[in-house]
Amino acid sequence: MKISEIASLLDAEVLCGKENLGGEVKSACGSDMMSDVLAFVKDQAVLLTGLLNPQVIRTAMMMDMQCVVFVRGKKPTPDVLALAENCKLTVLTTNERLYTACGKLYAAGLRGGDLIE
């Protein structure tokens, strides 16, 4: 699925990384617990979260992800966005809640990917 399709399915606003909307992603995860993302997630390219701090961006960077989606209409501060821009992450914000946003993407074919054992 292209990141642009994710934006369209979630009726999301693109906050940064417009140039990478054509990027192809194969799996996603949704969590507010960054330690869980770091522990169990493998090869996921998209992180959906309701958490709004710089560690969300750093976690995505560590995991080589391509896109972060903030749910419930949340928008990060400019310094957090600058961090994302710096590492070429695309950042979206959607009014959907986490469960619904994940469900819409899953229903459209974007799966959860493998878990680390």
Partner: peptide, 14 residues
């Protein structure tokens, strides 16, 4: 803040 779930050291070992 998304941390403190007792996964840090186990993740480092993993």
């Amino acid at each position: 803040l998304g941390f403190g779930a007792g996964m840090g050291l186990p993740n480092m070992k993993r």
